[in-house]
């Protein structure tokens, strides 16, 4: 083979390889979130089990942001979840945050249901209306013991106010 042809082919291969590595690294990076401006809001849940930083934040089933941080409030032992969403997305103050799972065994994510207020949530503000994760095991346990009644549908709309 001619030397220049060889060099050309090697160059093409190396460029392809670098492109693939970069492509994957970008996917591994911030994911679908663009580089645009973002802000954070907080929400308090009675139970944030199954959620982790990096979990998606969805509005109407569309991924709009990520869970940035989960920490515990030592005063009332509830979980405080920080959400990062794009600045372009403005949420009314009476929006609701709920932890849902995709499918029966799926990953947990946060779904935001926008409200109807005229005023919008400022960066760093806290969502007041929240709905905690469904504790699947205890639900199944109760079902097994035949005690699925009103009381146990305790996927409590645990709206908590600080």
């Amino acid at each position: 083979m001619k030397k220049s042809t060889l060099e050309f082919l090697v160059g093409v291969f190396v460029l392809l390889g670098i492109a693939a590595v970069v492509h994957l690294s970008l996917r591994a990076g911030s994911g679908t979130l663009g580089d645009g401006d973002t802000y954070v809001i907080e929400s308090r849940f009675a139970n944030a089990g199954g959620l982790h930083s990096g979990s998606s934040v969805l509005v109407s089933g569309v991924t709009v942001g990520r869970v940035e941080d989960i920490r515990m409030d030592p005063e009332d032992y509830s979980a405080i979840v920080t959400l990062r969403i794009p600045t372009a997305l403005r949420l009314p103050t009476d929006s609701m945050a709920s932890i849902k799972s995709s499918g029966l065994i799926g990953d947990k994510h946060v779904t935001l249901s926008p409200g109807a207020d005229e005023t919008h949530l400022e960066p760093g503000a806290r969502i007041l209306m929240t709905e905690s994760a469904v504790d699947l095991e205890s639900l199944i346990g109760k079902m097994a013991f035949g005690a699925v009644d009103d009381e146990s549908t305790e996927s409590t709309p645990a709206a908590e106010t600080p």
Binding site: S25, R27, A28, G29, G31, T32, S56
Partner: peptide, 21 residues
């Protein structure tokens, strides 16, 4: 396809790529 690719993006982390390479 949006669900597929967003799941892909969510799944792949640098740790996994490091393991792969």
């Amino acid at each position: 396809s949006g669900v597929y690719w967003s799941a892909v993006d969510r799944a792949i982390e640098f740790r996994d790529l490091r393991e792969c390479f």
